[in-house]
Computed example of a mutant assay.
Amino acid sequence: MPHEWPECLPVGAVRFARPTARFEDCLVFYRDVLQLPVIASWRGHTGYDGAVFGLPGTPVHLELTQHGETPEIPAPSTENQLVLYLAGHEAVAAVVERLAGLGHRPAPLDNPYWAERGAVAYADPDGWMVVFAPWIFGQDPVPTVA
């Protein structure tokens, strides 16, 4: 199956945005713990606080916003995931070791697909999962079931 982008949709960048009820905690988690680069941020812009993280550069972004009083956010499931594909098991192990040193522990996922293939997940302060997978999707073969 070809993986070509449609000519009729000339997208130059993609941003995934979601609200947070714990903006400061999420900012620390993504910026300081995961060390994602902040490529834009604002406070009090028409009542919004926000931060945009590059994934891993500027063409793909994750945006977190909080508006006004702490909003009620629907509870996420373990299927609310940001999957970061890393270059092999050693890269995942290095992330796990670094996060453990900062006091973070892996979180279980309902879907066994990830663990069976060596991926490890962590919950952000809102309970959204960040999955570290040990292969580059679309480039490396998906690991076989362990």
Rank of each mutant, 00 (worst) to 15 (best):
V33K: 02
R105V: 06
C8P: 00
P19A: 02
A133K: 04
Y30T: 07
V33H: 03
R117S: 14
F132S: 09
V120R: 03
L36Q: 06
V14C: 08
V33S: 00
V33G: 00
Q35R: 10
D140R: 03
H61Y: 01
P76V: 14
R117Q: 12
R98C: 05
V120L: 03
D140F: 02
P10G: 02
A75I: 12
D49F: 00
V120C: 04
F132K: 14
T70F: 01
P141L: 10
Y113F: 15
P37V: 13
T78F: 14
G118P: 08
D32C: 07
A17W: 07
G68A: 04
V96F: 06
Q139T: 15
G88F: 11
R22F: 06
G44M: 02
R31V: 00
A87F: 09
H89K: 11
E63I: 00
E63F: 01
T65S: 04
P143K: 07
Y30D: 06
A107Y: 08
W135D: 03
A100S: 12
L9M: 14
V142E: 05
V92Y: 07
E72F: 04
A93Q: 07
I39D: 12
G103A: 09
R18W: 01
H61M: 10
L109W: 06
L36V: 05
P106Y: 11
E24M: 04
L62K: 09
R31W: 03
E90D: 15
Y48H: 13
Y30A: 05
C8N: 08
F16E: 09
H104Y: 15
P37N: 12
R43G: 01
I39S: 15
P106M: 12
F53L: 03
P106W: 05
A51K: 03
A121R: 04
I136Y: 00
L36W: 07
Y122N: 13
F53H: 04
I73C: 12
R15N: 15
E4M: 13
V131K: 09
V60T: 14
G88W: 11
A100D: 12
H67Y: 11
V131Y: 10
T70N: 06
D126R: 13
G54Q: 09
P125Y: 08
T65L: 01
L9T: 06
I39A: 14
V11Q: 07
V130S: 07
W42M: 03
P112R: 07
V14T: 14
V38Y: 13
V95C: 04
T144M: 05
F16L: 14
E90M: 01
